[in-house]
Amino acid sequence: MKSVIRAAAVLTLSAVVPFAAHAHKAWLLPSSTVLSGKDDIAVTVDAAASNDLFYFDHRPLRLESLVVTGPDGAKVEAENKSTGKFRSSFDLPLKAPGTYRVSLVMDGAFARYKEDGQEKRWRGRAENIAKEIPASATDLVVTQNVRRIETFVTSGSPDDAALKPTGVGLELEPVTHPNDLVEKSEAEFKLVLDGKPAPGVKVEIVRGGIRYRNQLGETTVTTDDNGVFKYTWPEAGMYWIEANVSDDKTTIKDAKERRAGYSATFEVLPE
């Protein structure tokens, strides 16, 4: 009886497991998040991965997976996309007032295998697994990797048509609007996995400007039973949050494990 209970507990645990991603921090950095005016309103957004937030000194993020959702829920085209040595960059015209959700949505895979006794690593798109990993490979372990990197900008009054979760992977469902964040006030967000509340997930929160201070000063909060987490911004600035989970809900035939990550950049303004 005891062993049955233990097995059940292990199963529940393995359903969604938080894990730490040991990688560089990936981020989108908008030139502004709160805008006024009627004509020619736009932002420029940088996309990079680095250790220090928000300095582009390591590598650019590719823009193939860029998805921008406008205030009416429809897709918006970015302009002047470019990728340089350290960062990618693009312009986003805000033709209609309201809130825009800027996302890099990645759905890929990584694999470990042995070939002629040699340990090999592979990373790429799921449809290329058969093509790029030799048929002679042994000990093949494929992991699906679903990631979403986001930021938000609002022209005029904030709204939420663009903020509806797509229902795929780990996403943020704002309770407090992401462009309505003020220092020393509490913000509330919900994490959802495939559209359903994600409880017990650790969320790392770091303020930008790391290069000019000695301590990282990161905070970790955990989502409650409803997937909700709350945080009071200690001061104004650009903040980065990240959460990671892993489960077995993979959509890739060869993969047993799925990792789902979410990170976002928020601007917190002075009172």
Binding site: V34, S36, G37, V182, E271
Partner: peptide
């Protein structure tokens, strides 16, 4: 250039509480 309203957001408190509406 009719872009005086571009900086109304710099009146941060007013913009958040009233201006943007």
């Amino acid at each position: 250039k009719q872009e005086g309203d571009k900086w109304l957001k710099d009146l941060r408190q007013w913009w958040r509480r009233a201006g943007r509406e």
